[in-house]
Design a protein around this nucleic acid. Sequence first.
DNA 1: GTTAGCACTCTCCATACCCGAGTGCTAATA
DNA 2: TATTAGCACTCGGGTATGGAGAGTGCTAAC
Lengths: 363, 363
Amino acid sequence: MSLSERRARLLSLIVSEFVDSAVPVGSDALVRKHGVRLSSATVRNEMAKLEEEGYISHPHTSAGRVPSDKGYRCYVEALMEDRDLPWDAKQTIRHQFHQAGREEDEWIQLSAAVLARAVENAAVVTAPRTRESRLKRIELIGIQDTEALVVIVLQQARLKQQILIFPEPIEQERLTAITNHLNEAFAGFSAGEIGRSQVQLTQLEWHVANAVRDIMEASDRGGYDEAHLDGVRNVLTKPEFASPDKVLNLLDVVEQRNLTKLIPFRELAAEGVTVMIGAEHEEDAMRDYSVVISRYGTPGGIGGAMAVLGPTRMHYPETISTVRFVAGLLSEMLASHYGEGSVPGEPGDGPPADGDTRGKKRK
Amino acid sequence: MSLSERRARLLSLIVSEFVDSAVPVGSDALVRKHGVRLSSATVRNEMAKLEEEGYISHPHTSAGRVPSDKGYRCYVEALMEDRDLPWDAKQTIRHQFHQAGREEDEWIQLSAAVLARAVENAAVVTAPRTRESRLKRIELIGIQDTEALVVIVLQQARLKQQILIFPEPIEQERLTAITNHLNEAFAGFSAGEIGRSQVQLTQLEWHVANAVRDIMEASDRGGYDEAHLDGVRNVLTKPEFASPDKVLNLLDVVEQRNLTKLIPFRELAAEGVTVMIGAEHEEDAMRDYSVVISRYGTPGGIGGAMAVLGPTRMHYPETISTVRFVAGLLSEMLASHYGEGSVPGEPGDGPPADGDTRGKKRK
DNA sequence: GTTAGCACTCTCCATACCCGAGTGCTAATA
DNA sequence: TATTAGCACTCGGGTATGGAGAGTGCTAAC
């Protein structure tokens, strides 16, 4: 990153002007609108250099300059000032969160909605999960002769269900007996511990225990599948989506199936906000989009991911602060609800617990 | 409906030609492409009459004719031949259904996907529900001092959960006691019956019972909220969506929140397929769309709704047959799974149980 | 190193234009 | 009376044309 002071300042101006106006920015738009104390000719020279180095590009001769992915990256990394969200913006968000009910699923949905509205882009929030789920309780409810519904309560009040088929007819009393025995034997266990356990069990009990273990393992492995999406409309109304084929492209990205694949939820830093810009994504389909993503949740415990999706032409500073803030809020809500993270103060009243993650960005 | 034989035939041709080509159809396109044994001049005269009566309309002078909502309605009601789906189409659909697992939710999702693909439009399938849910079992699982997760199992293996707050700290043993008592008192009850019940209960037990009743009532009232949507892409690629504002309109319609409001799931006939065309919808937003909708499920018992959403220019006969067929398949799967409807034969192997609903359409 | 000046390039927009499809009318025909 | 041939008319869509404007790159002067 060998940018002279002046060139850096120009790049910064180009980015913020282009983000605001969505129009390629020309040399004397810069000197006029922003107080650049240089002539347009000088600016042009500098722009030519910036283009040579790959920070900006030309849609065609005689159009202004547009930041390239590299330009945005440099801006995010070094140029922009990573200031905190203004108080009233925070207040607005907090206010919206006060409508939250007690259902965890509702929180996720609400977070996505609030985030999408605040940054005027699309937002995705995955359901929270623990790194390794632990069994709290099993229930078996008979449905038919040879079928029962097994309900698994995991720690943190997560619920799983599946229908189980038995090789022989079985009545509710026996189901209850099995349940009691298994609850006694496995309470607090993880999937692995159930598998390794040496407890004496009948064949039927093993049948159930194996199913439980499978379900818990699946829950540990997957987890990012459930995700709430909001604000696609925001993205579609942006000027870059004037042509219908772009719209189709976005829709493919957004289609539930792909979403969790395209957004790199997995390779997500333990804390801090990560930004991925345009072609930095592995997927071709994401070439025109940027993603601002953060983990939320209690440290090392239950948590999920939260992301903003929009065109590369995005208000990065505001978006990053907003994601950080909303992730902080949701984390506090989770922590105070599950009562394990021991976050001081009331949720949403103090500053979010993000002071230390400030400015951590990826790549 | 005072249409001469000939005029009806012409209208029918106009509709099917326009549905295929998406281009306004002119008088001699009809005589040339379809074996109309009349001169284009005569056809023009007839068209003028049809237009007077409101069955077709003119985008502008010197364009061909386009069916109006009334024209489509007449076509659906009287003109089209409501033939059954060809064997191989059925076979393709059955084949896709064989991938279905045991999860009810999966079925819904799969149905939407299969339906959307088959009719090349968007499809919505709501989760099934019973008319009046009945309690099968309650479980209480302590989470914190004063909080517990109440898990309610309803008949047909439907699960509801909510976090419940108690006015005082309470341990698992007391929770279990409450559970046992309530299960004994209320097993098999509907929400109303719980409310009217005269059983002697402690204050805490009432606390729980009320919560359970509320949840069950909410489940009975709502129910169509959960819906799977698939195939929006199909709709967007249709030529009527060339302009971006149309796309936005569709997206608003499709946004999860609105969907269940805009599609008249509630006023749905007990059986048979219902068609709503364009401005027949109450909502303005739906003015350009048609919906082909059907109930599925066991007669009078558990069931949901299944709908196809597309532009008014839609292949009505095929869509109607397909909806009917897929609804029939899903109904069979539900019936054989819950074993109450006693449908003979294996699911998907016999003809679907739709012979009697043929041709029932609305308005 | 910076700046003024200028020719050049390219997009965007409006105008004009024609072509063809399709209509509606009238008069001739069976 | 119903049908048809003929014809003038209308309108949308595609294609050339021609600035206007914005912005560049280069050169020469400061």
